[in-house]
Design a protein around this nucleic acid. Structure first.
Length: 338
DNA sequence: ATTCCATGAGAAT
DNA sequence: TTCTCCTGGAATC
């Protein structure tokens, strides 16, 4: 699935182009007709991501309470946006400092290219023109000219959210459901801290992560993937964070020092911010020139260990190891990570 | 043309 | 642990 950064970008997309508008909600595919009918005609009032969960608020009516559309993309899920859509990540930035500093610079750029991940960025001629933007599990985003508005649904569209000027189509989600406020609170309570979620102070979030991880005898490689320990990390960030910290994924959380756990959290804060701003999981700092181009073109050139099994470690030359941990592929360097 | 595999995660066994 | 949900680009034949 998209790791947390993708979902935050999607939440910002909805914030920028849908919140405040009344929406026609439908299920072209037919598998979400009841839920769509509950939301149809309401005004979208909020858009938030917690970890990998997207929460879209819809206002109440005279007879009915506020409702929230809860979506989790799983591995395959994708949102396709069309119509009057702003696709520049810096336009979508919700934190004032980021937006103010960079808005003018890159105001009309999209992350381009269908197909393989890591396509180069691509300029967009005019921000006012109809366009398509795709935010999907793999984080590819495409931009291009759209035809008529709204476009016909393509494939199996579970939910279509249509305003006067913009449309969002959801396909292939793991979770798509309507929640009442109490259920949303329950969901939030079972999730670990997310540095980009606005509901908790950074300091408190860090402490919550350190406390929880240090009390567990499970390997840190599993704890980072446990959404109740920290929300938003997936298989790529898990492997890369542990390599960057030079920590053996098999060490129990209880065996890590507080400094090591704080370091992991702070590096996650940093990588997540970069991911939200760039739309890519850039886990090697400071790439320039040809190396940066290679990293954008090939996954194996973009990370320290992820999908690099059998290749020499960039740092020590040891062959990168691959094993299964809890049913997921774990990549790590036995030479560096102790 | 067909099969494989994935940046998840809950249920079933 | 294995199955299942369900999509699509990559790898393979």
């Amino acid at each position: 699935m998209p790791e947390g950064h993708s979902v935050h970008r999607i939440a910002r997309q909805f914030q920028a182009n849908f919140v405040g508008s009344t929406a026609a909600v439908s299920s072209p595919q037919g598998r979400f007709e009841v839920g769509a009918a509950e939301l149809d005609g309401r005004t979208i009032t909020s858009s938030e991501a917690i970890g990998k969960h997207l929460l879209l608020g819809f206002d109440g009516t005279a007879e009915a309470a506020d409702l929230v559309l809860h979506v989790h993309l799983g591995i395959y899920g994708a949102w396709d946006f069309a119509g009057d859509i702003s696709i520049d990540p810096t336009i979508l930035a919700s934190r004032a400092a980021v937006g103010a500093a960079r808005m003018g610079q890159t105001g009309m750029r999209g992350i381009g290219g269908a197909g393989t991940m890591g396509e180069n960025e691509e300029s967009i001629a005019s921000i006012g023109a109809p366009r398509l933007a795709r935010l999907r599990a793999g984080e590819q985003e495409t931009a291009g000219e759209a035809t008529a508005f709204p476009p016909d649904p393509v494939g199996q569209v579970r939910v279509r959210i249509l305003t006067d000027t913009a449309v969002a189509d959801l396909r292939g989600p793991t979770v798509c459901e309507v929640l009442e406020p109490g259920q949303v609170r329950a969901l939030a309570e079972r999730l670990g801290p997310d540095p980009e979620a606005p509901t908790e102070s950074r300091r408190h979030a860090e402490q919550r992560f350190v406390d929880r991880a240090s009390r567990s005898n499970q390997p840190i490689g599993q704890l980072l993937m446990d959404q109740s320990v920290v929300a938003g990390i997936g298989n790529v960030y898990r492997a890369e964070l542990l390599f960057r910290a030079r920590i053996d994924p098999h060490r129990p959380g209880s065996q890590l020092t507080t400094d090591e756990l704080r370091g992991l959290w702070r590096d996650w804060v940093k990588l997540l911010r970069i991911g939200v701003e760039t739309g890519q999981m850039l886990t090697i700092d400071g790439l320039r020139g040809a190396k940066r181009a290679a990293a954008l073109a090939n996954r194996a050139d973009r990370h320290w260990v992820y999908k690099r099994e059998g290749m020499p470690c960039r740092r020590c030359g040891t062959s990168i190891a691959l094993e299964t941990m809890q049913g997921r592929k774990l990549y790590w360097c036995p030479g560096c990570q102790l």
